[in-house]
Nucleic acid binder design. Structure first.
Length: 831
RNA sequence: GCCGGAAUGGCGGAAUCGGCAUACGCGAUCGCCUCAAAAGCGAUUGCCCUUUGGGCUUGUGGGUUCGAAUCCCACUUCCGGCACCA
């Protein structure tokens, strides 16, 4: 059921809106969720963080789910008595603000900060246990100043550099994109087909951390979702093999190729250079120049989508040159083709058509020879058109003949090393992080270009380089170069080194730079002498639990891991992984599909809250299923959540009215006490295992047990009912903070229910006097016995065999075997 | 194409140590309350049959085991990631 706007499906037990207003005011006054920086505070510290929001408008259902999940974790830590850091801020640079400014003829800051204000109010109403005093916005100069400072440190360490290269260009947004922002050949933001352009751009040298980014994932095993680790591993894409140097006739220097199959070196029958690599230009013989230029023009016209299609037929052109195979001296023709990528490996390959499908496709199209060097027992590739890549025995390979593939690889690598024509090598799919953007609403790159001194860093004491304030509206329209270039008085500066006339770099940083280290800034958001206070980061870091969507599995999480490792190497942090545990919450969808305007299936968070109240909405998203699963709003019932909360609230109110806060629970009804402590035990285990939906199911059972005790048992005044009601308030505070606070108060308690009130179940009350033992005959359940948990195997077997029901199924058959698992089960095997 | 994950009632999901399948909730049916309805409260609810009983059931087919939703093999379908990475 979806709420109709304005319709109030009020509970007749409590007034959600009144409770929200009452407790919001209380929390604003008492600030119960602020992290303590008191050095004498020796409570265990927990750092729980939700991926900070982008201020695109008001909060939506997606935020409702993500932050409800994160808040369960944070509130559980608060309940356990930890000193919890649970901050909030905004990822407030980015393209949508700029587009809004162009449309409204205003400044991006207006739209951005107005939306932040709206979201902040909504978060407060949503009751998330944030420490509001640490709020940050990445578009504040006090924040982005430190992006610039960090950029300069990266620059000094040669981890930030500028190079010419083919880059991904989005024609609509008129900016370059990082590899990670290109999805299926399209701009991840606007869906436009990405084209390749040759431009001079800034990069972070993330590739020099590829091995560590890969290796350190071992320590995240079991703590991060397996699929995220897998995605990162695939993205980094480590390949082990060898570099092999081929002499090129008429060229002094040999050309190196990378191969994962050095064992097939004797099967190389031609050589291919990436058509768009400078090397292809260089190697092209004069008589082939015309054909090559025509081919290059044809390749340049292709979009990335066309280019990357594996359906496409192979194309290429002979360059009129020959390479020499270093192991057998064979001359093989050099071709240029676009199936070889300029920016992977060395931009050139040895082609072994018999054992590589792409090379085979190419060879068959252009009539190049195919020579098998590994006998796999499959059909001949030249005839079947299928390259054989499996295990086999080497042939036609001189000294390698007769070896298995796995033996031949180290052998040939050794030979290459001895002769100085190659060596073992590793390659990564990961490319350097392209960080410059030709847009306005981001962090200016703090470099001055001087005709005499070249790239000159802006001195630290002149940071921040702030954005010019006079650009707005149409000034920001995409022009293919940064809008900042138009701000002449901003661009033209004196060179910090020689004092001569120079120009500022007009590009801004990818906003993923902002989010790569924001978690550190929360530890000391006011620090104005460094990006963060190292002592405080040592106290709080790394993040114990990070919560956010799987859409950042590669982008943000990889970049953040990279930044953390660089900062570690700079001696600024003493850990190397930023996020100890990661939880990916699912999406909220409706009627099987993502919510969208065109489908008209959007569910408005504000309307749901108006109709059912914050607590019911939060309970609904947490109870719907495992945190990582998507929630289909058509499958859930906030009305049912509200009904349950009403039942729970009535238990607390009735217990509060009927008994005193200091009642001794030991005097209460034993059955209810046991139910309460068993529930507490199970709720605790479920929350620890992050199975929040199960924890709520156990709270529901406890409410039912308490209800029954009130209505048909010892009555509301029984101390066990009070105890149950208090446990309900405490456990419910993780998802339904308003009802929990109000219920706690109605129970006569003072102070917030949310802090340090979690209880440990009494082990004596968890012991069961009787358990159910199952009696099976031939594995089918035939009887159930109530037995002591300490029953011996012998006694249980005797009682099972004595069971009349079991005997009925045994009849006159022979008992062949009796399996006893005291005290739970007996299986009598007859035949 | 390659790599990974998933499949449990009408629906969302529980049962992760190989030992009572279907907890909790939705929906549905019946009852109470009501002039009536809604809300609320209570009961029933996996399927089938020859119904005081019995049989079957965790995508399909096989296997291991006294015993399988759970482990193994094959297959089907769906979801996700990568996609000319040498």
């Amino acid at each position: 059921m979806t709420a109709v706007e304005g319709e109030q499906v009020a509970s007749d037990v409590y007034d959600a809106r009144a409770l929200q207003e009452k407790w919001q005011a209380r929390w604003a006054k008492d600030n119960p969720f602020a992290a303590s920086e008191d050095p004498s505070d020796d409570r265990p510290r927990s750092y729980v963080l939700d991926m900070f929001p982008y201020p695109s408008g008001d909060l939506h259902m997606g935020h409702a789910e993500a932050f409800a999940m994160g808040d369960v974790v944070a509130r559980y830590r608060f309940q356990r008595g930890d000193n919890v850091l649970h901050p909030i801020g905004w990822d407030s640079f980015g393209l949508p603000a700029e587009n809004a400014a162009i449309k409204r003829d205003s400044h991006p800051a207006e739209w951005t900060y107005a939306n932040i204000g709206t979201q902040a109010e909504s978060f407060k109403r949503y009751g998330i246990a944030f420490d509001w005093s640490r709020r940050l916005h990445t578009s504040d100069p006090e924040y982005y100043r430190w992006n610039q400072w960090l950029f300069l440190r990266f620059f000094e360490r040669d981890l930030a550099y500028r190079k010419d290269g083919l880059v991904n260009w989005c024609p609509k947004d008129q900016t370059v994109l990082a590899n990670e922002q290109v999805v299926n050949g399209r701009c991840e933001r606007c869906g436009t087909d990405v084209v390749r352009r040759s431009l001079n751009q800034w990069y972070f040298r993330i590739t020099s951390y590829a091995d560590r980014l890969l290796e350190d994932m071992e320590r995240l095993e079991g703590k991060w979702p397996e699929r995220v680790l897998l995605m990162q591993r695939n993205w980094i894409g480590r390949s082990q093999g060898a570099d092999v140097r081929f002499a090129i006739e008429g060229r002094e220097e040999p050309v190196t190729v990378f191969t994962t199959r050095p064992d097939t070196l004797y099967g190389a029958t031609f050589f291919v250079v990436a058509a768009d690599a400078p090397l292809a230009d260089e190697l092209c013989a004069p008589e082939q120049r015309e054909a090559f230029e025509a081919y290059k023009a044809q390749v340049a016209k292709l979009s990335d989508i066309e280019r990357q299609s594996t359906e496409r037929e192979k194309t290429g052109v002979f360059l009129g040159r020959y390479a020499v195979n270093p192991v057998n001296g064979e001359r093989i023709p050099v071709w240029a083709a676009d199936y070889v990528l300029a920016d992977y490996g060395h931009g050139a390959i040895m082609a072994v058509p018999a054992h590589d499908q792409r090379d085979l496709d190419f060879a068959l199209k252009f009539g190049l020879p195919v020579r098998e060097v590994v006998e796999t027992g499959e059909g001949a590739p030249a005839e079947t058109g299928v390259a054989t890549a499996g295990e086999g025995v080497l042939t036609n390979s001189g000294p390698l003949d007769g070896l298995a593939k796995s033996e031949a690889i180290p052998r040939i690598t050794e030979v290459l090393r001895e002769r100085g024509t190659g060596d073992a090598a590793v390659n990564y799919r990961l490319r350097d992080w392209l960080l410059s953007r030709q847009r306005f609403w981001g962090t200016p790159i703090p470099i001055v270009h001087c005709p005499d001194c070249g790239e000159v860093p802006v001195p630290d004491d002149q940071l921040p380089v702030t954005l010019p304030e006079n650009l707005r509206g149409a000034d920001l329209a995409p022009k293919g170069i940064s809008p900042l270039a138009a701000a002449e008085e901003w661009v033209n500066v004196d060179c910090p080194r020689c004092g001569g006339p120079a120009k500022r770099d007009t590009d801004t940083m990818d906003t993923f730079v902002d989010s790569s280290w924001y978690y550190l800034r929360y530890c000391s958001p006011q620090t104005d002498t460094a990006p963060f206070d190292q002592e405080k980061v040592r106290r709080w870091g790394p993040i114990d639990q990070y919560v956010g969507g799987v859409e950042h599995a590669i982008l943000h999480l990889l970049y953040s891991r990279f930044f953390t490792k660089v900062l570690h190497d700079m001696g600024m942090v003493d850990f190397t992984e930023p996020f100890t545990r990661l939880m990916n919450q699912g999406q909220v969808i409706n009627q099987g599909k993502a919510m969208s305007k065109s489908l008209g299936n959007g569910v408005d968070l504000g309307a749901e809250i108006d109709a059912y109240g914050v607590d019911a909405v939060r309970l609904t998203v947490v109870f719907a299923g495992p945190p990582e699963d998507d929630i289909d709003w058509a499958d859930v019932s906030p009305a049912a959540s509200l009904k349950f909360l009403g039942r729970a609230f009535r238990v607390m109110v009735q217990a509060g009215e009927a008994s005193e806060p200091y009642t001794d629970p030991a005097a209460g009804d034993l059955n209810l006490r046991k139910a309460t402590h068993r529930a507490l035990d199970k709720i605790t285990a479920a929350v620890e295992e992050q199975r929040f939906n199960v924890a709520i199911a156990r709270i529901m059972e406890l409410v039912t047990a308490a209800r029954k005790a009130i209505d048909g048992g010892p009555g509301a005044a029984d101390p066990a009912v009070r105890e149950a009601a208090e446990v309900i308030a405490i456990t419910l505070s993780l998802v339904a903070p308003y009802v929990a606070e109000e219920g706690w108060e109605r129970l006569g308690r003072t102070g917030s229910v949310a802090i340090g009130n979690w209880r440990t179940p009494d082990p004596a009350l968890l012991v069961q006097e009787e358990v159910t033992a199952v009696v099976q005959v031939n594995s089918k359940v035939r009887d159930k016995l109530q037995v002591s948990p300490e029953i011996t195997a012998e006694e249980l077997e005797a009682r099972a065999l004595a069971s009349e029901k079991a005997q009925g199924f045994i009849g006159d058959k022979t008992v062949r075997k009796v399996i006893v698992r005291a005290p739970k089960l007996v299986n009598i095997v007859v035949g």
